[in-house]
Amino acid sequence: MSTKPKTPLTVIGGYLGSGKTTLVNHLLRNADGKRLAILVNEFGELQIDADLIEAQDDDVISLAGGCVCCSYGNDLIMAMMDMSKMGPCPDHIILEASGVALPAAIAGSVSLLNDFAVDGIVVLADAETIRNRYNDKYMGDTVSRQLSDADMVLLNKTDLVSTEDCQTIHAWLSDVTSQTPIIETSRCAIPAAVLLQDFGRSDIAPATQDAHQTNNFQTTLRVPDGPVDPNDYAIQLLKEIPGLVRAKGFVTSTDGSSKTIQLVGQRIEITPAPADATTGVVTISVCQASSKPDGE
């Protein structure tokens, strides 16, 4: 069995036109040195911004900054297994599910592969159309299952609806998805760290415990006073930090071992920490007062 660290993988789901491709391009532009691997059902579906493309062959597009994009066609799992043989390992994998796919089923399958760890499921909802999709005769239950699969919902295209409508839709979506954090975006403009943050890298490394607030997101570093139960600690973070969407870091467990805590939405993963881990958990939360970002 493989002992190399698992590559984190984020599943992006959502119905046709909800902005999955825009999100992928946005992440590629804001990868900030991270080598991303994008997996899409078929290349033709994903219009990668031309200036990001460095080279292309049948199965792989090489992108600026060491990122790659692969199409998985009709066999995702086989493509993933091929990818795990490809070197070098990407820092993070973004898997764009097809518009009718159920992202949790995909995540369940990926979790059977030893080289990957599901980091989270992000589902996009088009503010203009989501309610119609949800009530569609044929696709309603699929859209509903996609939303309930999400660890985090991006309510996208908020710039195309009025502030009032946006609030109504947000409230409706909260009802439908219960506990799942909902983040309003237009053109998928969201700090990449909300999806890709990885403690120990430089993308978000607050030097102090001060809160950083940018673009409606707040980042904090929390350091527990002493040993904690990692799972209880993660649940505690969820209770204490309103709008918490993501947390990652290391704590000393009550049994003395060092553990990695990773939290995306309501999804909590506790795994053994690397040897050089320093205690502390970075959290990212949505500022609760905000409704719709200014500007576009």
Partner: peptide
């Protein structure tokens, strides 16, 4: 059960 689960062992 199901192709995605069968593949990793099937090969």
């Amino acid at each position: 059960k199901g192709p995605d689960v069968m593949t990793p062992v099937g090969i």
